[in-house]
Design a binder for these strands. Structure first.
Lengths: 156, 156
DNA sequence: TCTAAAATCACCCTAAAGTATGAAGACAAT
DNA sequence: ATTGTCTTCATACTTTAGGGTGATTTTAGA
């Protein structure tokens, strides 16, 4: 039981010991201060330095690592079919017809102005559609939207 | 030049100002110490606390975030072609290494600002690279460039 | 060593993209 | 009839992209 406790909390115990050593060091520094009365600035500086390092160390040790999810497409050899639309992903996004059209024209490299002309609507309409589809796809830019759409096989 | 310096080093300047404020605070604390002579422990404690926080803050701000990558494999029907770079087309375009890098990051949906950060160069540099590659590829926009690059099999 | 291409950066300016908000008509479902 | 979504459009504003120019520094080759 005791041994298990030791092994399990080895980390914590080590931290505790380190802290104790640190406090001893501070006490020693304080004692030094009594001898060299004009070393206050040095003492303060040392304290600052030590605790800055402590803070950095704490942050690095304890901060939870950021988790990023990366979708990697595993290619599966498949017969001839070059491209089939992934209807499941498409429905999951909830894009409307018009938004999908705009997305496809974006992927072809058209500007909003050109898309508007192609679809016989105003530039503002295209901006609205694009903004909405960016929100639905959770992206910030058209290039991201196109990239994601390709990865999800929504567009060729 | 000056304005750009201000905007680019805004972060750094803010850090500097924060540090200055912190030092002022310390001076003030020191002055307090002269009045309440028995507050040394409190003073030291405050220093320790402040600099621990500073350390934590520094670490969180400046340390590159640890990234744990969670890979989710996603099966995608593939036409048996595992993408081979078309070196002939690539040479025909005459893109430089850096320009190709920028193009690839564009295709991943990054903004010029993000590309600059990724490649550790300035925004202006990325703009220059992108302009040059647009000329070489004879396109007008990044979206067109990405589309053409995919069609020419220069990027996946 | 000299040179040409590549890479870097800055400044100014315009164009395009994107954000936020509001609104109105069409149309299907309840 | 009311509700909700889609589509359309506008206005105002901010941010990003892109064009043009000029410059310095690296780097690789003749």
């Amino acid at each position: 039981m005791k041994l298990h406790f030791l092994t399990k909390h080895k980390q914590t115990i080590l931290y505790g010991i380190s802290l104790a050593v640190l406090l001893l060091l501070l006490k020693w520094l304080e004692w030094q201060l009594l001898i060299f009365h004009h070393a206050l600035e040095i003492y303060i500086g040392a304290i600052a330095l030590i605790f800055t390092c402590l803070g950095i160390w704490l942050a690095l040790k304890l901060a939870r690592p950021k988790v990023t999810t990366v979708v990697i497409e595993k290619k599966v050899p498949d017969s001839g079919d070059p491209f089939t639309i992934n209807h499941r992903e498409l429905e999951k996004l909830g894009l409307s017809n018009r938004e999908l059209e705009v997305l496809q024209l974006m992927a072809a490299g058209l500007s909003n102005q050109e898309i508007a002309a192609r679809l016989f609507v105003s530039l503002n309409t295209i901006k609205t559609h694009s903004s909405n589809l960016f929100i639905k796809m959770d992206v910030k830019r058209r290039t991201q939207a196109v990239d994601m759409a390709r990865k999800l096989r929504i567009i060729p």
